[in-house]
Nucleic acid binder design. Structure first.
Lengths: 143, 143
DNA sequence: ACTTGATCTAAAGTGAACTTTAGGTTGTAG
DNA sequence: CTACAACCTAAAGTTCACTTTAGATCAAGT
């Protein structure tokens, strides 16, 4: 219980390089980390969870400056919960939208591949005209 | 039909700065753009769709070099459809996972906020111990 | 005590992705 | 015919997010 970790262990668990963890602390987005008597960083399990959240937000394009805002809110404690919730929800919606864009491109590619043999046989291009035929997403019957 | 656009119009429609569009072309990730007699770029509707896909992939962390690979596959035409599909699916799965991570953090925050008044009243910290009680995600009955 | 590996700080360096600058061409409106 | 906005290239500059370097301290094993 209340396990403690060194920076090296945290690097391994989170996939972040040691130097990046120190850099993040300097930027103020790891505001909870304690030190021992000789100045070495001590991480707890919650710090690892926090770093995982940072990783997630970074990987989806949130800049450090915004992470800093989020960290500052978190430092202000529970009363800022609603604001933080808002930020996370917005980010979630943003990346859900990206998922939808990707889905539609995936569908288009699938459609193209389904059409490809037919198009080749009939020597036509998969272009806007063809896409227009495809409103229902099905191949018309072969002539 | 078969509408054509200038770089300025495309910039407006896609949200990318004009200079970035030119930069993207130089990097080889806009391989379909034609020119008029005097060397100006001519964009079609499909080019705008392509840029939207690029934007989506970039916004979710795909580097230019990988976009270049994807563009090269696309240039090779329909036979590389499966490969491209694989790339898009992988990216989609990657960002769906990020959505899940965010969801779990959002839930935790919601939980904290639900608990906050109780914790304050009983003067306890929302910490590991508390989280341990919460396996079922519900508040225990008030004592 | 001595070596070795992990940690520390401060500061300089790097790579990717733009962004700006400089100087030139084009095309439409007055 | 001239102004002026929109376009062009090539090249230098900037920003962000690390990453590396240099030099010091600490902790465990022999």
């Amino acid at each position: 219980m209340n396990e403690e970790f060194t920076i090296g262990q945290v690097a391994e668990k989170t996939g972040l390089p040691i130097h990046t963890i120190r850099y993040y602390e300097k930027e103020g987005i790891l505001p909870f980390i304690k030190r021992n008597e000789s100045g070495r960083r001590i991480f707890e399990y919650e710090d690892i969870q926090w770093i995982n959240l940072l990783n997630c937000l970074r990987d989806t394009g949130m800049p450090i400056a915004q992470l800093k805002d989020y960290a500052d809110l978190t430092l202000q404690g529970d009363p800022t919960g609603e604001k933080r919730l808002e930020i996370l929800k917005k980010q979630k919606e943003k990346i859900e939208e990206q998922v939808n864009i990707l889905k539609s491109h995936i569908e288009l590619l699938n459609l193209k591949m389904e059409w490809y043999p037919r198009l080749k046989k009939e020597n036509i291009q998969f272009d806007h005209a063809v896409k227009a035929w495809l409103k229902d997403g099905k191949l018309p019957p072969e002539q």
